[in-house]
Design a protein around this nucleic acid. Structure first.
Lengths: 338, 338
DNA sequence: CTGAAAGCGCTAACAC
DNA sequence: GTGTTAGCGCTTTCAG
């Protein structure tokens, strides 16, 4: 049997209301009463029962984080950032992975029993798209992450993808590269990370007066190292020549960089590489990888902050907001000449 | 206001007990009653209130997973495996990171408010050691992971470290390597992953009649890519010569391999590498990294299973158990000759 | 400033 | 087979 408010109240010689007041820092309590109560709490090692508190208050103190896959370094680092931001505010985080990109599965997780007990949800959209925005009008407070749905029915936090990609491409152009591969495109995608990053790429070429060559745009299904390696093998086999690669994430870049080097080309001398995400690994690859830092901590801070605002606000009282982080070009060896 | 058992009962024209019976698959219910209830549940989209259920039953349906750091690929992959194993059994997982190796901080997390509401804890020990085993005699069901505490007051699941390291070392010896670096030792550590893996290394040398050279044992503080790279730089600067490396985890191996290649040595021709953990990245490094697969899924399965047994058993009724997984040598390019 | 008491939604004796 | 009912521990309204 665990210690309850009653036990503390009895030991301190007060009522449970007073104990509750002390716990919640209710201001009007006589100092000596507070002392007595705190002493009793310490002596009994009292811990509030969170289920009871949750039942009574309607709040669990937990938020959900729905991400594609923890084994993906980007999302592991995002989860870490979200947990840090949440703990600062006394919340705990329930992580849920959705695995493959299946709309139905994703919606089920969003509405499923596991997200039942959280006060709000941070959802990094993967399978759903702009056309599904309507499905997100759920009663649980929700903040969207990622680049699949803009101007949806609720808040959205992401990085400026077009700017980031333009920055990355300009960086390679400034090195004198002219035949730059865009690695990681998704056919016919306009919105979504792939679509937006392709747009930034084309904008940068255009601004620099470098002709856009469709054969330099490489479509890739998933964004893992494996896919980057495969796509690069196919590209090289097809005989296309290039002297720079803007990869739409770091994993793709690392996979592709490996294949390029295997083929005897030097990085950055023969081919310069830049990625997206600034995952830890980019600091230790051979060579280290230049990348766009998306401002992960800022994403987490703003998203958790907004989610909390929604949790305490009247439903419907906060109009949907959009936040884009400050990004940063991180130059490393893959674009630096000795 | 959300839907409660009462609402469902009213719509179905039965009592809440009957609804509860249906939900819990209580066997003796007339089929048509069950139908009516299920229809009402579906119509109202009823979801049980987990706080109320938790309060009443004393179970939250959640287990805690305490790990050092999600950004560490090994633990991200472990978390993934644990979530998979837990979901199979209808549990959700609350992940908690402990950050640096601080005993006090670690104990606080273990006893802290966030682990308050879970039914049991999976704890991958980092800072605590064998001498602290007594501190783990807590009332919450607990299963230990990692290699810091053996034969503690509760169940423990891990890989056979000595065997794994012996296997790895034998593999390099079988390639004809004689000057094999042991990378990742911790000074004076006997138990713990570093101590055990060093023992496996020395055992393999001894069995093969290869002299043990203390200068080939490289101490490393942390086990990140960065530390592997630094340690390798220092080792090479000191002029020690070697033709193989048994790294005590994959990250160390990857960091060190990079430095070796930077210096113009070829892997595996000049130096063969093998790591521990079989993290995803080892499939995509240049060259791909041979490693010891610790049986992560098995660790997760056994640990979650045992934890559940402890949760449903009388406290103290289950004697502490030890489980060692089946391991596997995974040979990749870093130890393969064309 | 502190106490009494109602009730959050659910489970599980116990009745019928 | 199904209904009644007593709390689980906490927050909070309302008195005093």
């Amino acid at each position: 049997m665990s210690i309850t408010l009653h036990d503390v109240a009895r030991l301190a010689g007060v009522s449970i209301k007073t104990v509750s007041n002390v716990i919640h820092d209710y201001p009007h309590i006589r100092p000596d009463t507070r002392e007595k109560v705190l002493a009793a709490i310490a002596e009994l090692d009292y811990r509030p029962n969170l289920s009871a508190r949750g039942l009574r208050s309607g709040r669990s103190g937990a938020i959900g984080l729905i991400i594609p896959d923890l084994r993906n370094a980007y999302f592991a680092e995002l989860a870490d950032a979200v947990m840090t931001a949440a703990h600062k505010r006394g919340l705990y985080v329930l992580i849920e992975q959705m695995g493959g990109a299946d709309k139905q599965a994703e919606l089920e997780i969003l509405r499923g029993p596991r997200m039942q007990m959280v006060d709000g949800i941070l959802y990094s959209v993967l399978a759903l798209g702009q056309e599904d925005a309507g499905l997100l009008d759920i009663s649980t407070p929700l903040v969207l992450l990622g680049d699949r749905i803009y101007n949806g029915p609720t808040d959205h936090v992401t990085m400026p993808n077009v700017d980031g990609s333009r920055l990355a491409t300009e960086h390679l152009l400034s090195l004198g590269r002219q035949r730059i591969l865009a690695l990681g495109a998704h056919e016919d995608e306009v919105i979504g990370s792939a679509g937006l990053r392709l747009r930034g790429y084309t904008e940068a070429l255009e601004a620099a007066g470098v002709p856009f060559r469709p054969e330099l745009v490489v479509n890739v299904g998933n964004w893992h190292r494996f896919d980057g390696a495969e796509a690069m093998r196919a590209t090289m086999a097809s005989g296309i020549s290039f002297d720079g690669v803007v990869a739409f994430n770091d994993s793709l870049a690392l996979g592709a960089m490996r294949v390029v080097q295997e083929a005897g080309l030097r990085v950055p001398d023969d081919v310069a590489f830049i990625g997206f995400d600034d995952i830890d690994e980019t600091r230790y690859s051979l060579p280290t990888l230049s990348t766009i830092d998306p401002g992960r901590a800022e994403i987490a801070e703003v998203a958790v902050g907004w989610l909390l605002e929604r949790i305490s606000a009247e439903p419907g009282s906060i109009a949907p907001r959009e936040h884009e982080t400050a990004i940063r070009l991180v130059q490393r060896e893959s674009t630096t000449f000795a």
